[in-house]
């Protein structure tokens, strides 16, 4: 149970984390799943949610907005558009984004992109939830 494996979280902007972990919980398209040492080769798409990484020194939480995840040979690679550590989330900005998305959805004017606004709303709410976990 105590064996560690490597977790890599990579976004187009930077390598967010590369460290030894004991357990990772991530938001797969089919629901949250957990990964432990010696997991079978596994590839899945991720959706908006939180990545929980248990390291020997404590828990880390990341808000993510979807991407892919591959587990192979005790390396878990998470390729996502965004991954923000809970402690770095700007709560004010997330709240603003949420309110903006809500306002846009309520107006129902024909020139707004509904799926896009819904996506923005989901991302903002997710970030606020993850920020609570810090």
């Amino acid at each position: 149970m105590d064996k560690t494996f490597i977790l890599e979280i990579v976004t187009p902007v930077k390598v967010v984390c590369k460290e030894e972990v004991l357990h990772v919980k991530a938001p797969g398209v089919g629901g949250y799943f957990g990964v432990l040492y010696n997991h079978a080769p596994f590839l899945t798409a991720l959706r908006i949610g939180v990545i929980e990484a248990k390291t020997p020194t404590g828990m880390h939480y990341y808000a993510t907005s979807g991407g892919f995840c591959e587990v192979m040979e005790n390396t878990m690679k998470i390729l996502v558009e965004t991954a923000e550590p809970a402690v770095e989330i700007d709560i004010e900005r997330a709240k603003q984004a949420r309110d903006r998305a809500l306002a846009r959805l309520e107006k129902k004017s024909p020139d707004i992109d509904v799926p896009r606004a819904q996506g923005a709303l989901a991302r903002a709410i997710n970030r606020l939830e993850v920020a609570e976990m810090r």
């Binding site: 187009p12 797969g28 398209v29 089919g30 799943f33 079978a40 080769p41 596994f42 590839l43 899945t44 798409a45 892919f68 192979m72 040979e73």
Partner: peptide, 28 residues
């Protein structure tokens, strides 16, 4: 080459998402 690779939901769906994304990222 890994054996017993598990795909979720299924390889086709993942491929459908990853191909255009890969193209965008490579060109970027």
């Amino acid at each position: 080459f890994p054996v017993g690779y598990i795909f979720e939901p299924n390889p086709e769906r993942i491929l459908q998402e990853i191909c255009p994304l890969n193209l965008h990222v490579q060109l970027w």
